[in-house]
């Protein structure tokens, strides 16, 4: 079969995307864990290490541009490469969310507040789980699985709403801590946005497989991101 070169290079590219994905997963889980432990040193390291994710993303982007320029992919190949460009952007943004969480840790220092660590960890693990399976669906080009994963976004939204109400109540009860709890609110928000972005990845997966662009995201995608 012709186009062995292109096929091989696309496989290599997908491996790199999975690697980037696992970096993001790792960063997200660590960020929440570090917040629970209030480990400022680890938080600082995590904050710095976001650069590695950015670098990886640019490396992949460059590889895709070279592939497009040299191999002139068409149809499915073209959709795959274009979608991958989008997906690595999403992943890099997710990395930024983890970095944002580390920043919150650094700003909270050892402030004496009651962080809903267990709920945040559940959110994080749910989002990371979605991301992991979403990337698998992407690599396997499984539109059904992708659609199913996009549906799970609701779970994260529910957790977010729960944390949101809890934090609002806490802030009303104790206005002096509004600043700190607002920071915590961003953590939950970032995790919620992360799940949204997994949904975007799933949309791309369906696009690659079918050529159709479906809007799966239930929340307002245009909302600005807080970092």
């Amino acid at each position: 079969m012709p186009r062995d070169t292109l096929t091989r290079q696309i496989h290599h590219l997908l491996d790199e995307v999975l690697l980037l994905g696992s970096m993001v997963e790792q960063a997200t889980l660590s960020a929440v864990d570090i917040l629970r432990q209030r480990d400022l040193k680890a938080a600082a390291t995590l904050y710095e290490n976001d650069q590695l994710i950015n670098d990886k993303r640019f490396a992949i982007e460059n590889a895709i541009l070279i592939l497009i320029a040299t191999q002139q992919p068409m149809a499915h190949d073209l959709r795959l490469l274009a979608a991958t460009l989008e997906i690595i952007t999403e992943l890099e943004r997710m990395g930024d969310y983890a970095k944002g969480i580390a920043k919150v840790t650094l700003q909270l220092k050892d402030a004496d507040i009651n962080i809903p660590n267990r709920d945040l960890e559940r959110m994080a693990s749910q989002a990371v789980n979605m991301l992991h399976r979403g990337l698998s669906a992407f690599v396997n080009e499984d539109p059904n699985e992708a659609s199913a994963i996009a549906g799970e976004d609701a779970v994260v939204d529910d957790l977010y709403n729960h944390i949101y109400h809890h934090l609002v109540e806490t802030m009303i009860a104790n206005p002096a801590t509004i600043d700190q709890y607002n920071q915590v609110m961003w953590v939950a928000h970032n995790l919620e946005r992360m799940a949204d972005r997994v949904t975007n990845i799933c949309e791309r997966t369906v696009f690659i497989a079918t050529g159709d662009m479906l809007e799966m995201d239930t929340t307002d995608d245009e909302e600005s991101d807080g970092e």
Partner: peptide
């Protein structure tokens, strides 16, 4: 045709995976 061909044969041809 060049982004979302409907037919598998078209897809195979324009992605260069013909024959």
């Amino acid at each position: 045709i060049f982004t979302r061909p409907k037919d598998k044969r078209t897809e195979d041809y324009i992605t260069g995976r013909f024959g």
